[in-house]
Amino acid sequence: MPQIYFLCTGNSCRSQMAEGFARKILGKQWRVASAGIEVHGLNPNAVKVMAEKGIDIAKNKSKLVDTDYLNSSDLVVTLCGDARDRCPVTPATVVKQHWPLRDPALAQGTEADVLTVFRQVRDQIESRILELAHNQGE
């Protein structure tokens, strides 16, 4: 069974959303997890915008990178430059992809402005995971 790991700095937004979409889109044919280089806690706006897509990540926890899971993954996806640059070294068998996505936690403005950024990033993640699922089926 293929294994995927989504990494970002704090495992609070982007990687959590990616894990949620991957569990839904890739299904039980994949082992799916996410983690961070640091632990920042789950961002409530990530929970809110994922719920709009019918995906509940409210019970997810912010986790540190598990080296054993990382090294046994088939695919590691970094969602920010910090995670890409600070990701522990992996065996040559681990395929790495980098998805340079804006950090929605840094969005400023009204609550509506901030949620707009979260939705944009969420939708980019969904699109990339749909593409990943399509490419795996080929």
Rank of each mutant, 00 (worst) to 15 (best):
M1G: 12
M1S: 13
M1R: 10
P2L: 10
Q3E: 12
I4Y: 04
I4L: 06
Y5S: 12
Y5H: 14
F6V: 15
L7Y: 12
T9I: 03
N11F: 07
N11H: 03
S12P: 06
C13A: 08
S15A: 04
S15I: 10
Q16N: 10
A18Y: 11
A22N: 00
R23V: 05
K24H: 03
I25M: 07
I25V: 15
G27L: 11
G27Y: 04
K28G: 11
Q29F: 10
Q29M: 08
W30A: 08
W30Q: 02
V32T: 06
V32G: 07
V32M: 08
A33S: 15
G36T: 03
I37S: 12
E38H: 12
E38I: 06
V39K: 07
L42V: 15
P44W: 09
P44Y: 07
N45M: 13
A46K: 08
K48A: 11
E52F: 04
K53Q: 11
D56N: 15
A58R: 05
K59V: 13
K59Y: 06
N60F: 09
K61N: 11
K61M: 13
K63M: 04
K63D: 01
D66E: 11
T67V: 13
D68A: 09
D68E: 06
S72P: 00
D74N: 10
L75A: 09
L75P: 00
L75E: 03
V77L: 14
V77G: 13
L79D: 00
L79F: 03
C80D: 14
C80P: 00
G81P: 00
D82E: 11
A83C: 08
D85H: 14
R86I: 02
C87L: 14
P88C: 08
V89T: 13
P91C: 10
P91G: 07
A92T: 14
T93F: 02
V95E: 15
K96C: 05
Q97M: 14
H98Q: 13
W99I: 07
W99M: 05
W99A: 07
R102E: 12
D103N: 15
D103F: 10
L106H: 01
L106N: 02
A107S: 10
Q108Y: 04
Q108D: 06
T110K: 02
T110M: 01
A112P: 01
A112S: 07
V114Q: 11
T116G: 14
T116Y: 13
V117M: 05
F118C: 00
R119T: 09
R119N: 11
V121W: 05
R122E: 00
D123E: 08
Q124E: 15
Q124S: 12
Q124G: 06
I125R: 03
E126C: 09
S127T: 09
I129K: 04
I129F: 04
L130D: 01
L132W: 00
A133E: 01
A133I: 04
H134R: 15
N135V: 05
G137F: 02
E138N: 05
